[in-house]
């Protein structure tokens, strides 16, 4: 199974994302430079890793979404191929309109990097993990999810250790504690599953999330 991991100028989570995905049996995760368009069609699924694509100038993801890469990716999703955006990847997917909503600067307009808990709300693509609470790191400046209405297709919500989506457990001011969204074959979340994958990282809950994603590709 071939998974394309995109690198835009300023992407900086590509190595740990590749390392995590390649840890699954039968997965070959490939680094794809954003201009390397001819390789896109050969992939079975895609991950847009975290970082600061194009320096997060204008808004996080705003410039990446205008690249031909993302235009092509849009076509690929129409054919049902899965796309998973992590952090900056999630921001790019919302900017591109592939996922609903927008990611505003955090409540305190400060970067926030720490371990938090999320509870999986999606009962379809990530249904195997439905209602499970996971400990996983976040690291972002613009992760404050916003939308005009309470959206459908919430992938995960920030929660306390018991899975309650309390005000205290919301690290950035997101509407309804939303940490990630899923729509058709496109999913995205602010937390970093690839940073809670190996034992040395202090939690391996992220492995479960990526495992579900990888298994969904096989279907």
């Amino acid at each position: 199974m071939e998974i394309g991991v995109f690198r835009f100028p300023g992407t900086n989570n590509e190595h740990e994302t590749l390392r995590a995905l390649n840890n699954f049996e039968g997965v070959s995760a490939n680094l794809i430079e954003y201009k390397d368009l001819q390789r896109i069609n050969d992939q079975d699924a895609f991950v847009i890793p975290g970082g600061f694509s194009f320096g997060d100038i204008l808004r996080a993801g705003a410039i990446a979404k205008t690249t031909e890469t993302v235009q092509l990716l849009r076509d690929e999703t129409l054919s049902g191929k899965l796309v998973f955006g992590i952090c900056n990847g999630f921001q790019i997917l919302t900017e591109a309109g592939l996922l609903p909503g927008a990611l505003l600067p955090n409540r305190h307009t400060r970067f926030v990097s720490k371990f938090i808990n999320i509870k999986i709300s999606d009962d379809k693509l990530f249904g195997d993990l439905f209602n499970q609470v996971m400990r996983i790191p976040i690291a972002h400046f613009e992760g404050n999810y916003w939308n005009t209405t309470r959206p459908d297709g919430v992938l995960a919500r920030y929660s306390d250790i018991d899975g309650r989506d309390t005000e205290d457990s919301n690290p950035n001011g997101s509407l309804d504690n939303i940490a990630g969204m899923v729509k058709n074959s496109v999913a995205g979340m602010m937390p970093h599953p690839e940073r809670a994958f190996f034992k040395h990282q202090g939690s391996t809950d992220g492995r479960k999330i990526l495992k579900v994603f990888v298994e969904a590709i096989k279907c």
Binding site: N12, N13, H15, E16, R19, A20, G50, R110, F111, V112, S113, K114, P137, A139, H192, E194, R195, F197, F198, H200, Q201
Partner: peptide
Amino acid sequence: IQYDQHVQGN
């Protein structure tokens, strides 16, 4: 917490 402590995954 304003500094990314986990990037690179190590």
